[in-house]
Simulated scan of single mutants.
Amino acid sequence: MDWFGQTRGVTDFLQLNDAPVEFVEPELLRATSYGHFTSMQVRSGRVRGLDLHLERLDHSSLELFGQGVPADRALSYLRLALDRADSADLSIRVNAFTRERAKLDAGIPVSPELLITVTDPLDPTPDPPRLLAVEHERVVPHLKHTGTFPLVYFGRQAHLAGYDDALFHNRAGNVSEASIWNICFAGRDGIVWPEAEVLPGITMLTLQAGLAATGVRSATVPVPLTDLASYDAAYLTNSIDPALPVASITTPAGTTEYRTDPASTALIAAAFEAVPPQQI
C-alpha cells in the first residue's frame, strides 16, 4: 500500500535524492508546494529528450532557488531509481523543492532537493479527445511549476460538461495549450504551433527539432478560435501522447470536428522518431 492507502504497482516507489522514502512526513508534503517538476516516460532505460529534461531541471531550479541542478547529479539519482525498479520501462516524475524556505525567503540561494516518483509505464490515450475551449492564462507559463490547480479545475469542469478535457485560450481569443498537453495543428502550410504564453513542453520541443530534421515546414503563429476550421487536423502532445489526434474543439461559436489525417499523422510520427531516445 502507498501513503494514500492505494495498492502500488510492481515498480512504484519514492526516492528523495539518493535514498528511498518509506514514510512521507508532513514537512515534506508542505515543502513540495513550492517548486517545479518534469515528467518522463522511460523505455528500455532511455528517454526521448532527456537532455531537455535535465536542462529544465537546471534552469528552473536556478530561477526558483538560486542554484541549479547539475546534469550529473540528476542523472545519478535517476540511475539509482532505475536500479531500484523492477523494470527499465517506467514513468518518472522529478520534483525540485526545498525544505530550507527560511534561507530562500531571506534571499540566500539553496540547493534544491529532488523527489523522484517512479510508477509503472503509462499507456497512450486510446481515443481522440473532445475538447472544450476555456479562457485561462497560465501563471509563470515558462515553468512547469507545482501550481497545477487551474489545470485540474478546468479539466474537471470540461469533464462535467461532457468533454474529455479543456483547451485553453487567452483573453485575445487565441489558442495556447491544453491542461497537460501542448497542441499543434496541421494544414497546407505544414505544422502550426500556437503563438501564446505556453509551457514549452519537452515533447513539443522534441517534435519541433524532429520536424526541422525531416524537412517539414513548422511555424509558430497566432491561432484564433475563429480559425480552427481552417486546419485539417489537431494534435495534443506530451510525454505520454507524442501525437494524440483531437476529435473536436467546442467554442462559444460552435464545434469544429476533425477527421483522421493520415498524411500529417505520418509526418509527426516521423519527426518524433527522428530524435533518438537517450540512455539515462
Rank of each mutant, 00 (worst) to 15 (best):
R217V: 13
L205K: 15
P242F: 03
A88C: 04
N170I: 01
L104C: 12
A209F: 00
T11W: 13
T251K: 09
V69H: 07
H159V: 11
D12P: 10
T260D: 13
M40A: 05
H142F: 13
L78M: 01
V198C: 15
A178Q: 10
G49W: 10
A158E: 06
S61P: 14
L82Q: 15
R130P: 05
Q157W: 09
A274V: 01
P222F: 02
G45H: 03
D127F: 04
F97D: 05
L122C: 01
L57Y: 11
S39Q: 09
V140C: 09
D18S: 01
A243C: 05
C184A: 09
T265S: 15
V24R: 09
L29C: 09
S61W: 14
N95D: 03
D58R: 15
E177D: 03
D241R: 04
P242H: 01
N170W: 05
L62R: 15
S176D: 10
I202D: 08
T146E: 00
A178C: 11
Q41K: 11
A96S: 09
A85Y: 06
E27Q: 07
Y34H: 04
M204I: 13
L82C: 14
E273L: 01
A233T: 09
P129Y: 00
N238G: 11
I92T: 00
L16K: 02
I92P: 02
A19W: 00
Q208N: 05
E113W: 04
H145C: 01
P124H: 08
H36N: 13
A212D: 15
D89W: 12
V10R: 15
S39G: 12
S33V: 08
G215W: 07
S44E: 15
T250Q: 05
K103E: 15
F185A: 06
V24W: 05
G201S: 07
T255Q: 02
A31V: 02
V140W: 13
V192L: 15
R79D: 01
V47F: 01
A234R: 05
L29S: 04
R171N: 12
L236F: 06
N95I: 08
E113P: 05
A274I: 06
E113K: 07
A133K: 03
S91N: 13
D86M: 13
T206W: 04
